[in-house]
Write a protein that binds this DNA or RNA. Structure first.
Lengths: 247, 247
DNA sequence: CGCTTGATTGATGCCATTCAACATGGGTGG
DNA sequence: CCACCCATGTTGAATGGCATCAATCAAGCG
């Protein structure tokens, strides 16, 4: 087993991240979908003043497993992974977050997983204490946070079925279907995967070689088509759905 | 793969459960730990009037995966499992809940997993709509629910590491350690497992035979001792902890 | 062009599943 | 109380899926 691809930049946050200038909530891309969506304009401004905007390079880690839990954040742009690992270094990705998602652990002392940028990303970062205080005074925010956490829990539990019971074939098919739903194909029906083979392997709990083998077998069977490193065309969706349930 | 041990009683809830009589929140065992703990006496009474107390026999299923989400509940007594399954019948346990835990999906349309009693159990059951309405008006309740859901999410994500990356040996060792923490041993240091081999296998995502084999090997190595079907003595905790991390 | 990085393919071995037989032990009725 | 039974657990042998190790291929890039 192995982890890879992100052991690179791991300096402390405040010095690494680049604060963005001239932020304005009114023009924020995720304004309608993030947890702050239901706040009044004045409350949103107050929250905004608590936090700050930061940029991340792909590969940078923002929070560490087991660290004191100092910050929480909204994802404004980009994709990040949440991961835990065993003492001897095996890593398991426990979640992937996208623009408008919320990361970090409010009302808790420790961060139970690391957070690493898969692509370049922008965050709206809040110190934990200040955020917790603000949240306690704003029921709408807590309600939104609760909804989001409940959804996360549902998704995470659904993923456990995949990790615990599905075969490598089923895992890869499920992953491809998920990507097909989440990402838009171009006019040729080709999807550009935002993840490397290694990252896919980590998410599915298998090795990079197995991912590769399953992909080429799906191609051989005419179920999918592979275009370069990151391109996939889902040719036979029905077949793919069948394989996702019972390989 | 297989599921078993609970395909028995599966009639609809209202007719199966036995309402308990003479309930009184003041004398409730889980009053201080359940989500209602922070409510005022009058608010708790109001919530209590929304719900009703029911008893369950071991093996009974209260909620069904994919069903319309009609009820939520507090666990007053007993142990229950949450499970999802693939189209072809393979089941994965996605959570185990104990007294004072909350079950069901507030603010959502569908129940994403089934809920089945592992032991005889008592619940404090609320209709979904009424509970949601009450929760919206009581920020303390929502805060408590948020805390609990965040904790659940952390625990679930930690479990993903086990399912995705750990070997059978590590899984069984981790399970035994968990039980050692959760349950009290008698004066001989013997723990009485509340789960059958089949249930353990389902939780760990392995087969019953593998559980059995790993257990006997741990016994052969002197790490644990097996007493009858359900009894275990954790002899060498340090060794067990080492095996849990890297088999 | 060599060098690097990511992906594919092949060979081999191990671990967990599968299928099957056997043991145990709690419960029931004679 | 014993014989019997059925559910549960254990053990054995064979299969197969996935990991591991390692070589090869394909793209970028200085």
């Amino acid at each position: 087993m192995n982890m890879q691809f992100d052991m690179a930049q791991n300096a402390a946050l405040p010095t690494m991240v680049r604060p963005c200038v001239g932020h304005n909530c009114e023009r924020c891309d995720v304004r309608d979908r993030a947890i702050c969506a239901d706040l009044s304009a004045s409350d949103r401004d107050a929250l905004s003043r608590i936090g700050r905007r930061v940029s991340l390079k792909a590969g940078q880690t923002v929070m560490w497993e087991g660290d004191d839990n100092m910050v929480v954040a909204n994802v404004v742009e980009g994709t990040l992974k949440l991961a835990t690992s065993t003492g001897d270094g095996r890593e398991q990705i426990v979640g992937v977050v996208y623009a408008s998602d919320f990361i970090g652990r409010p009302f808790g002392a420790r961060t139970p997983h690391s957070v690493t940028a898969l692509t370049d990303a922008r965050l709206c970062l809040f110190p934990r204490g200040a955020f917790d205080g603000f949240a306690r005074d704003h029921a709408e925010l807590q309600h939104r946070l609760l909804q989001r956490t409940l959804d996360d829990l549902d998704r995470t539990r659904a993923w456990m079925l995949l990790l615990g019971r599905k075969t490598a074939r089923e895992k890869v098919a499920t992953f491809l279907l998920d990507m097909g739903r989440r990402l838009r194909a171009d006019r040729d029906g080709v999807i550009d995967l935002p993840l490397s083979r290694q990252q896919i392997a980590d998410i599915l709990g298998i090795t990079i070689e197995t991912v590769s083998r399953q992909m080429t077998e799906l191609k051989r069977g005419g179920t999918i088509d592979l275009i370069g490193r990151r391109g996939v065309r889902l040719v036979d969706m029905a077949e793919l759905e069948a394989l996702a349930e019972a390989g």
